[in-house]
């Protein structure tokens, strides 16, 4: 079991990323959390400057690389909070998504469930330069929470992108942490092997490797931060948590339900 790792180090320099948002699902009542009867599926929140041509690439099904996003796509242990996927999509954009299914009559209800997803969009160049920060911020703040019906559409659909400032992780420090633990060597070796191929590949970790998703995302951030910007498969890199299948591309996956620790497999 690894110890939690942090993206903040004393040798870091300050940097910033802009995050744009797209929420898809249903609006809910603020007090009960239930979906009002007139509420249907819609884009419930969007940054005003999100490229409209990009929006079509941000559906949960496309981001997980499946024809359909259904409850089976989420591992049992992640059903409540949702699965997480980070991967680069079209138009030089990288999406970080949390998606789940929640009951229409509130979080603890028993009614039929609806899809709820929150997608953050960062520039691919920011993802390549600051992957540890992107994953650390997402681990702490990206939630698939529904938006409130009481909030006006004018506010929800014209949101200003949020700017996050952080201390960027030093590459040497990241490499030192990686080489200290077995998971770090596994990740580096995995990326090295994947560099010489075009095939999809997945490296799985489970609850025996990391106590929780946040620790895994911190570790994945260290591994990605240590990759050179000239790494040939940067655009194929994906990170997934609680997803029942490997995400497309070169995927680091945290699968708490998975029985086999550190299993290396080629994705179909």
């Amino acid at each position: 079991m690894s110890s939690p790792v942090s993206a903040n180090t004393s040798t870091a320099v300050e940097a910033a990323i802009d995050i744009r948002r797209l929420h898809y699902g249903k609006l809910v009542d603020a007090t009960t959390g239930a979906v009002p009867s007139q509420s249907g599926y819609e884009v419930t929140r969007r940054s005003f400057d999100l490229d409209p041509s990009l929006v079509g690439h941000l559906s949960p099904a496309r981001l997980i690389g499946r024809r359909r996003f259904d409850p089976d796509a989420i591992e049992t242990s992640a059903l409540r909070s949702g699965c997480f996927v980070a991967r680069t999509t079209a138009y030089d954009a990288t999406a970080l998504m949390r998606a789940r299914f929640r009951p229409e009559d509130g979080e603890n209800g028993g009614a039929r469930r609806h899809q709820q997803s929150s997608v953050w969009v960062v520039a691919f160049d920011d993802w390549r330069r600051f992957p540890a920060a992107c994953l650390a911020i997402a681990a702490g703040h990206l939630r698939a929470d529904p938006d409130l019906a009481a909030e006006t559409a004018a506010v929800r659909l014209a949101e200003t992108p949020s700017r996050w400032r952080f201390q960027n992780l030093d590459v040497d420090r990241a490499r030192a942490v990686l080489l200290r633990d077995a998971w770090g060597c596994d990740m580096l070796e995995f990326f090295l092997d994947a560099a010489s191929s075009d095939a999809a590949a997945c490296l799985d970790f489970d609850a025996r490797d990391f106590a929780n998703e946040r620790d895994f995302l911190a570790a994945a951030g260290f591994a990605l931060q240590s990759l050179s910007s000239s790494y040939p498969r940067w655009r194929d890199v994906s990170v997934a948590c609680g997803l029942a299948y490997p995400a497309p591309g070169v995927c680091l996956r945290y699968s708490p339900d998975h029985a086999l620790p550190g299993a290396l497999s080629d994705a179909a």
């Binding site: 599926y41 819609e42 949960p60 259904d70 469930r113 899809q115």
Partner: peptide, 8 residues
Amino acid sequence: GGVATDTL
């Protein structure tokens, strides 16, 4: 209990 079919 069912899942609402999405619009995607």
